[in-house]
Amino acid sequence: MTENPALLSFANVTKTYPGGRPVLQGVSLRLTPGETVALTGESGSGKSTLLNLAGALDGADAGEIVVDGVSLSGLDDAGRAALRRERAALVFQQFNLIPSMSVAQNLAFHARLAGREDAGWTAEIVERLGLSDQLDKYPEQLSGGQQQRVAIGRAMATRPRLLLADEPTGNLDETASDAVLSLMLELVTETGAGLLLVTHSAAIAERLDRHIHLSRGRLS
């Protein structure tokens, strides 16, 4: 049987912080189209570092990372930016919303850059995330939970091939958290995207297809 091509693959990836402290030690993983994977681990175990590498925000010291058929080792800064714009979307604990743009403008910004702006899809995201009455506001006028929902919506508006999320529901109540996770899982089902999600929640991890654990720089 032919193995499905990987949407994200790490092959013996190593990353060491300045000063010589190893963060990732020979990490290998595969994420296939339509697959959802939960990544857990203790604080400081390297989960965010792994996501930064997968999203081309940082480079590995050794090993190979491939996203949707593109090897990251061969990309310059412009190529890495294009990959994040066109193939991968990231939701991190820092919201990184553009303060001079309204919620509506923030939601549309990345999709427009990627040439994939879809008013109907964006409207569905807005409704599902409960942002309909926030579109004219600016980030500073929003609560932390509202900003987090905008950041999630902005990432999903591009219909990314690969969605990387670091504790995306950490500032949300249980009802909003369930709605956000359901929307992410539906995106994967509808588009064949892949989801790699960092979480401390066993309940969230159970809803995903697979669960991997990072400890002392190694996956299990």
Score class of each variant (00 low, 15 high):
H110G: 11
Q105P: 00
G34S: 06
V126R: 05
R21V: 15
L24P: 13
H200A: 08
E186H: 14
N106H: 12
M101A: 14
R112A: 12
S201N: 07
G59D: 14
D166Q: 04
L131V: 11
L39G: 02
R112F: 03
V66F: 01
L8M: 05
R87M: 01
S215N: 12
S102R: 15
S71E: 14
G153N: 07
R84C: 09
D68E: 13
P99R: 03
T169Y: 01
L196N: 04
L97N: 10
T169V: 02
G170Q: 04
F109S: 13
G34F: 06
T191F: 14
Q146D: 01
I212D: 00
A78H: 14
N96I: 05
R30M: 09
M156N: 06
Q134H: 15
K137H: 14
N96R: 15
S45N: 01
Q93W: 11
A114L: 08
R149Y: 03
G69L: 04
L142P: 05
L75D: 08
L29R: 11
E64W: 02
T191P: 01
N106E: 11
T2W: 04
E140D: 14
S45L: 02
D133S: 14
G153T: 07
V27W: 11
I98Q: 14
E186G: 11
L39E: 01
E190V: 11
A62V: 10
V126K: 05
L7D: 02
A179P: 08
L219R: 08
L208H: 09
